[in-house]
């Protein structure tokens, strides 16, 4: 692989390289990386009187402080909201696994021609606007008196994120060697045992990557709790939105964003480690 890449590279001089990679790099440095660092910097600043931040001209003492972090750690409410965000993300992921599994399995075991159609049918609802999908649940749950409850939040979260679980799981299940299941059957394992001892352990890498794709966006979601949840169903995302748009306490909002970033990085790390360990397991089996 690396040799091939070297062969590809050898033909072009240094300037072509930068002519190609330069423009997108500069754009993303300016509008992704720099803003990301500004969030870090803003979290150590003092909020301005009418929103924004205290200007740097006011001097180091007036402009910088740890106040946002002191505030966050001083009030148990924030820890509780982080905890309930994790709980919602966990429940959503778990339900997504349960719902996605039969679907992914059916698709993986279908004949090639039908497979593409079945996958397309999973992606299509996903092509409708995110707000439209939430609105559908407002319509459905309103008459049933289930709107503005934790149930509605979870239902909406699952609905919006389910395809993210189906696709990686299907990609994983598709690769399984049917000979393994046949071998298990020949050795006398029934369907139940075959599933739990062969298929499920082999599909763990797929579950891990699907979980990362569901868990991470759910952690930061604000629109679902805002539209489907009650006042008590606030998550980290709502808290961040509140600080930036309603209370206009930008340092506190920034500090919360950093908290969310750390949580996301931790989850991504766990998922990556899990997927890798799972893969090693696969090698051991096959």
């Amino acid at each position: 692989m690396d040799e091939r890449r070297e062969a590809r590279e050898s033909g072009s001089g240094g300037w072509t390289r930068w002519a190609v990679a330069g423009p997108p790099t500069v754009f993303l440095l300016a509008f992704f990386l720099v803003p990301a660092f500004i969030v870090v910097a803003a979290s150590f600043r003092e909020p301005g009187e009418f929103g924004g931040l205290v200007p740097l001209a006011a001097g180091w003492r007036a402009a910088f402080s740890m106040e946002a972090y002191r505030f966050l750690s001083g009030d148990l409410v924030y820890a509780q909201i982080f905890a309930s965000s994790f709980a919602v993300a966990f429940a959503t992921t778990l339900i997504c696994v349960v719902l996605a599994y039969p679907l992914a399995w059916l698709i993986a075991r279908s004949p090639r021609r039908r497979r593409d159609l079945l996958v397309l049918l999973v992606i299509l609802p996903f092509a409708s606007n995110f707000l439209v999908r939430i609105y559908a649940w407002i319509m459905l749950l309103g008459p049933a008196n289930l709107l503005y409850t934790p149930f509605a939040v979870i239902a909406g979260m699952v609905y919006v994120h389910l395809p993210f679980m189906v696709l990686p799981l299907y990609t994983n299940l598709e690769k399984h060697d049917p000979a393994l299941l046949e071998a298990a059957q020949d050795l006398g394992a029934n369907a139940w045992t075959r599933f739990w001892r062969v298929t499920f352990p082999l599909s763990l890498p797929g579950i891990y990557s699907g979980s990362a794709l569901v868990f991470i966006p759910v952690l930061g979601m604000f629109a679902v709790p805002e539209l489907l949840g009650g006042t008590g169903d606030i998550l980290i995302g709502n808290l961040i939105k509140e600080q930036f748009l309603d209370n206009r306490d930008w340092p506190l909002g920034s500090a919360l964003s950093i908290g969310l970033t750390i949580a996301v990085l931790a989850c991504a790390g766990i998922a990556a480690a899990g997927a890798r360990r799972g893969l090693q397991g696969t090698e051991a089996v096959s």
């Binding site: 720099v34 990301a36 500004i38 966006p217 995302g237």
Partner: peptide, 21 residues
């Protein structure tokens, strides 16, 4: 990374950047 992270983080960082910087 901009694709993989929660959208809200990109949203607030750009808001800060545009308004503050």
């Amino acid at each position: 990374t901009p694709v993989a992270m929660p959208e809200i983080l990109l949203g607030v960082s750009l808001l800060l950047f545009f308004r503050q910087v």
